[in-house]
Design a binder for these strands. Structure first.
Lengths: 221, 221
DNA sequence: GGATGTGAACGACTTCACAGCG
DNA sequence: CGCTGTGAAGTCGTTCACATCC
């Protein structure tokens, strides 16, 4: 490929994508995979922008972060772009995920085909509920929470998915961190406190619904 | 730079909270409700900031959007602040919600106590699956999708929750919009296209998980 | 003293506009 | 000509610093 890029002090040529940009890269990637299936060899920034709901300039800026693949007058070569985005997002490898809290939400996530498709492999399940411990779900045994250190030491999950009630969330997060997890996807309606070397993405459904209520109220002329 | 801003009523210049700010207001509100339960009559911006993980200046800016309730040297009166935030977010009323796509995700949301607590009432369920139609879930009957116009005309749901596969999402969204819905919370991994007068909040789990993968990969020391 | 409210500086992200290449 | 890549300008949001008030 191109070059080893770690931004030089001051004026690096390629800055790393911003957080917002990363979200859009995911969306581009999804669209690109569809396009490739449809046999489209190249895409323009306008096409991608339309599909994702952003301007063409925004698309070009986002894609500039990952190197210059575009050909003036032509567009971007679909397969190369897919590979490049996958690499930037860290999807050119497998990620193993541990899930804590086996309720309806976790079941929904386990059944969701998008995850394995993108290289996320769920490798361990945990719950405190004694009636669930020992059962199997999609071929995986449900472990008790206090088995977490041993089980995680063995299966080496890098990501943790927290789907427990708010009261239990911090405790669970701490246990996962202690077991060496590198990142958490939190669904509990709670603000988690983690050491700086552990990454966190939170999906707070109440907050999202309240955002919507706010927007609707605002747009009530 | 005193630009003419559109402000509601008489007292002073209140700009509306930004989107990001609204998310934080939700978090403040949750914390404030806890504090009130604990009997705390006033809060400082430092306390709130610590609880939510933002700076005190950020808290003050956010709260300034909703009027000046704070008392220098004292802090903010908890109950008044709660009321004010509720009003700004549109939580001083009930919202009726229709849910389309009755899978594990919807079941998780139906069971989630945070929603009714905040005034979100689920009033109708829809699914295409003939084996589900006619069944009841938490006391509510599951309707077929083509009953959507009639049922929604009667129960007057203002918000729609889309929890169907990506392929069906746009069609469902269109149906909800046609039925007069004012806002959508979308869980399908798809970019929806809606008329400007219908609000949209999307929760794309794949995107979130990919964000996490990116962050973890980036922080690989 | 302790805490708010807020201009001003700062930084991050987006849009614009256009040079330049295929 | 169409489309990319990118400085420049613009916009938005956050942090700072401090006057102000209890």
């Amino acid at each position: 490929m191109a070059r080893m890029e770690v931004s030089r002090d001051g004026n690096g040529v390629e800055s790393r994508p911003s957080r917002a940009s990363v979200g859009r890269l995911s969306l581009y990637l999804r669209r690109l995979e569809d396009l490739e299936r449809e046999g489209s060899g190249t895409v323009s920034s306008v096409q991608l922008g339309d599909a994702v709901g952003v301007t063409d300039a925004q698309v070009r800026k986002d894609l500039a972060h990952i190197g210059s693949l575009g050909q003036p007058g032509i567009g971007y070569p679909t397969p190369e772009l897919i590979t490049a985005i996958r690499r930037v997002l860290g999807l050119d490898r497998e990620w193993s995920v541990a899930v804590v809290g086996i309720g309806n939400l976790s079941r929904a996530l386990l059944r969701y085909r998008g995850f394995p498709q993108r290289g996320f492999r769920i490798v361990a399940l945990f719950d405190t509920d004694a009636s669930k411990v020992g059962q199997r779900l999609d071929g995986l045994p449900i472990h008790s929470l206090d088995q977490l250190p041993e089980v995680l030491a063995e299966c080496k999950a890098e990501l943790g998915l927290v789907a427990v009630p708010a009261e239990a969330a911090q405790k669970v997060a701490d246990a996962l961190v202690a077991a060496g997890i590198r990142g958490l996807l939190n669904f509990a309606p709670a603000v988690l406190r983690l050491p700086a070397n552990v990454n966190l993405v939170s999906v707070d459904l109440t907050v999202q619904l309240e955002q919507l209520a706010f927007l609707v109220q605002m747009s009530a002329d």
